[in-house]
Amino acid sequence: MTDPAHEPANTPTDQRAVAALLLTRTDERLGTFAVRGLDPLADAGLLHGWVTHPKASFWLMQGASLTDVEREYMSIAAAEHHDAYIGLYEGRPAFLIERYDPAYIELKGLYDNQPGDIGMHFLVDPAPAHGPLHGFTRAVLTTVMEFLLADPAIRRVVVEPDVRNSAVHALNEAVGFQVVEKIAKPEKEALLSVCTRDLFDAATRGGAR
């Protein structure tokens, strides 16, 4: 049975979502990925299932209620230095992107911020309807990076995953991230890593722009 709360976002023919696509890319093996804006109310049910799933423990929202999720993403939507997006796979929601300015939030005062830095978090649907696909998460991260770097003002992507999240460290390295240092955040010990345009291109396309 289809969850009615998910139906508007999950329907590939949803004209609102199709008209508002911010990026579309095709993976030669897996198919089409895209990015659209996030609607804190319409997408809350979908997001609640993702962020509270046992596999999403590093997202730190395991005990969140639906109202908590609505409030969190309404707050992000209203924030000056933080925003969120839904990633699509073959027209259906498949991952979450959060983009932030590390000079103001998350990493303020914790690292040597440079002009053109952008911070990023991403979360893949922990229980996708299509089941496991080899290379899917790497394709998602590649899509996320292409989305962020489509802004010519961005020079580096900065991430701060939990030091224990070895799967994400491996993925980050695969698309060009280099570890800078371990940093202590209030909620975790993190592995600060950065990726420039040239590092991303070298890792994913075999050459620099």
Score class of each variant (00 low, 15 high):
Val144Gln: 09
Ala34Tyr: 11
Leu192Pro: 09
Lys108Glu: 15
Pro40Asp: 11
Asp39Met: 01
Leu96Asp: 04
Thr26Leu: 13
Ala77Pro: 13
Thr204Ser: 05
Ala42Met: 12
Thr143Met: 12
Phe58Arg: 07
Phe122Asp: 11
Pro93Lys: 05
Ser75Gln: 14
Ala64Val: 04
Gly87Lys: 01
Asn10Gln: 15
Asp3Gln: 09
Asp39Val: 02
Leu133Phe: 11
Pro102Phe: 05
Arg164Pro: 02
Val179Ser: 00
Leu110Cys: 00
Gly135Cys: 01
Glu70Tyr: 08
Arg205Val: 06
His169Leu: 10
Val144Leu: 06
Ile105His: 02
Asp117Cys: 03
Ala203Phe: 10
Arg36Leu: 14
Asp14Gln: 03
Val194Trp: 07
Pro126His: 00
Lys188Trp: 00
Val159Ser: 05
Ala127Tyr: 00
Pro40Glu: 10
Asn113Cys: 05
Ile183Glu: 03
Pro132Asp: 10
Arg138Lys: 04
Thr196Pro: 05
Arg71Leu: 02
Phe177Lys: 01
Phe95Tyr: 14
Pro12Val: 14
Tyr100Lys: 03
Leu96Tyr: 13
Arg71His: 13
Arg92Cys: 10
Asp3Glu: 14
Lys185Pro: 00
Gln114His: 03
Ala174His: 04
Gly131Leu: 06
Leu191Gln: 03
Pro132Glu: 13
Ala139Ile: 12
His82Glu: 10
Ile76Trp: 07
Glu90Phe: 14
Asp3Thr: 12
Pro128Phe: 13
Ala5Phe: 13
Gly45Thr: 02
Lys185Met: 08
Pro12Gln: 09
Val140Lys: 06
Ala17Ser: 04
Tyr85Lys: 10
Asp151Asn: 04
Asp43Leu: 05
Lys108Ala: 10
Glu106Asn: 08
Met145Glu: 14
Ala208Trp: 03
Lys182Ile: 04
Tyr111Gln: 05
Pro161Tyr: 09
Ser57Tyr: 01
Thr32Ile: 15
Gln178Arg: 11
Val163Asp: 07
Glu173Trp: 00
Ala167Asp: 08
His121Asp: 15
Ala190Tyr: 03
Ala94His: 15
His82Ile: 10
Gly116His: 07
Leu30Trp: 13
Glu7Asp: 10
Phe58Val: 06
Gly91Phe: 12
Gly109Gln: 02
Leu148Glu: 15
Ser65Arg: 10
Ser193Leu: 04
Arg25Pro: 01
Gln62His: 01
Asn113Val: 13
Pro102Cys: 07
